[in-house]
Structure formats: structure tokens, C-alpha cells
């Protein structure tokens, strides 16, 4: 939006919302919304505490392991599906099912199979992220320009060379797009996993704060989480745009 001919930055309205929050909190409309300034005070007070650091590091560990497995399994499976028609037709229905299925329903199964702890959370995270990574890698390989493949063949590239020098790079924009969405889903997955298996990470903190009605603590953790999630998603969007320059030129 423009004010007096000056273009306001995109996210600047959040400042206005923050002010509104502060006012609502000060007026005391509801116990559940403490003033934003108090939330920030609490935020700085708890951010270095062992409980918070433990929750954050556990969450970060579960998240990065989950994303790692989703990428390491997802990209090759997707590329193989893009290259082999048989594999594609066998796997695609399942990928599509799990892409849109309510995966929260599977968490209880993971809990009985893999125990009430970190392992289940990591698998939940992977399950949230992997399907879109597979699907995008597949789409990336399938859209590769025929003439690029013909070019590689005409210059006598071996199939391994064609794979490492053509397929991967030509599909890279789509693959990264899939990874970005997958990572955003993984953030949601790791939190959902921790909420349902609430003895680890932020799940445990949420239990503690809500049982004791510690509203400012609760909001402080939420703000940290939302800010981290937003930063991760924006950072990946930036990376993607760095690659998009050649995607647009294909």
C-alpha cells in the first residue's frame, strides 16, 4: 500500500497488529491475551533458560532428522518415479493418498510401534514432509525438455552422466520447490508430533505452561516458534528464487 506516495514495506502492518495486541492486553479484555510488551519481557527472560534451550534443541534435532530423511529418501524416489513409468504407476496413487491424507491419524500408530518418544516424532516429521518432495522431484524430472536429453545423447553422454549432469540440474528448481513446501510441512509435523507425544521439546513446555495458566510464557514460546517457522520458509523461498532465474529461461 502507498501512503503519501511512499510504498509501505510488505509486512509492516504487523507492527499495527502488534500495537493492537498491546492495547487489547492493557485494557484487559481477556485473561488469555496479556500485553505484547509483557510477552516480550518474558520471552527475553526465558530464552536462555535450560528448559527452553532443551526444548528448542530437542525440537531442532527432531526437525532436522525428519527433514533429512524426507529429503534423502524423497528426492531419489521422486526422480526414479519420473524416469520409470512402471514404478510411477505403482507408487503414484500412494503418494497422492498420503499427500492429502490426515496424517495426524497415523501418529497413534507410530506411538505404539516406535514408542512414546523422539523416534516417533522424527517419523511424524518425515511423513509430513516426504510426499510433496517426492511429487515435485517426479514432476521436475518429467518436465525436462526433451531436446536437452536428446542433446546429451547426441554428444554421447552415458546414462550416469546424463543423470548427474542433466536430469538433476534440469529438475533442480522443482526439487527445491518441493523441499521448501516439505520443510514448511515438517515444521507443522514436528509440532503436531510433540503435541500428541507431549513429553518432548515444546510439547512438554506447552503442557507445563497451560497447566499452570502461564499466559505470557505460552505466548512467548508461540512467538519464537512462529518467527522461526516464518524465517525458515522465507529463507527457502529466497534460495528458490536464486535458482528460479534459470528455471524461467528454460
Amino acid at each position: 500500500m502507498k501512503v503519501f506516495g511512499y510504498q509501505l514495506p510488505g509486512m509492516s502492518s504487523l507492527i499495527l497488529w502488534g500495537l493492537l495486541w498491546e492495547i487489547v492486553g492493557r485494557v484487559g479484555v481477556t485473561f488469555f491475551i496479556p500485553p505484547l510488551s509483557e510477552v516480550f519481557q518474558t520471552l527475553f527472560a526465558i530464552i536462555g533458560t535450560p528448559a527452553f534451550v532443551k526444548a528448542l534443541s530437542e525440537t531442532a534435532y527432531a526437525f532436522s532428522m525428519g527433514v533429512f530423511f524426507a529429503i534423502v529418501i524423497g528426492i531419489p524416489v521422486g526422480i526414479l518415479m519420473g524416469k520409470s513409468r512402471l514404478l510411477d504407476e505403482l507408487l503414484l496413487p500412494w503418494v497422492n493418498i498420503f499427500l492429502s491424507a490426515p496424517l495426524t491419524a497415523l501418529v497413534p500408530v507410530l506411538m505404539v510401534l516406535f514408542g512414546f518418544g523422539m523416534k516417533s516424532i522424527i517419523i511424524t516429521t518425515s511423513l509430513f514432509a516426504i510426499w510433496i518432495i517426492i511429487l515435485n522431484s517426479r514432476a521436475g524430472v518429467m518436465q525436462i525438455n526433451r531436446s536437452l536429453v536428446d542433446m546429451a545423447n547426441s554428444f554421447g553422454a552415458s546414462s550416469w552422466e546424463a543423470f548427474t549432469k542433466i536430469y538433476f540440474w534440469a529438475a533442480l528448481p522443482e526439487i527445491l520447490g518441493g523441499v521448501r513446501i516439505g520443510v514448511i510441512r515438517a515444521v507443522k509435523g514436528v509440532i503436531i508430533g510433540q503435541l500428541l507425544i507431549s513429553i518432548v521439546g515444546f510439547g512438554a513446555l506447552f503442557e507445563l505452561y497451560s497447566a499452570n495458566f502461564m499466559m505470557t510464557h505460552f505466548w512467548a514460546v508461540l512467538i519464537v516458534l512462529f518467527a522461526l517457522a516464518f524465517t525458515i520458509s522465507e529463507f527457502l523461498a529466497y534460495l528458490e528464487s536464486r535458482v528460479a532465474y534459470y528455471a524461467a529461461k528454460r
Binding site: 500500500m1 507443522k188 516458534l225
Partner: peptide
């Protein structure tokens, strides 16, 4: 454009945020 400026950021943040974390608060 006004409402875009005012509301879009909220939904953009909501889209990337793990909103499930709000559940304990909603229950309270």
C-alpha cells in the same frame, strides 16, 4: 490494496506457522 497490506501478512505468517501449537490455548 489497503486490506491486502493489513491482512495478508497475518495469513502469510499463519500459513507457514505450526498453528497446532495454539490448541492448548484454545482449550484454556
Amino acid at each position: 490494496a489497503k486490506f491486502d497490506w493489513l491482512f495478508s501478512p497475518i495469513f502469510v505468517v499463519m500459513q507457514s506457522a505450526p498453528l497446532a501449537a495454539l490448541i492448548p490455548l484454545l482449550v484454556m
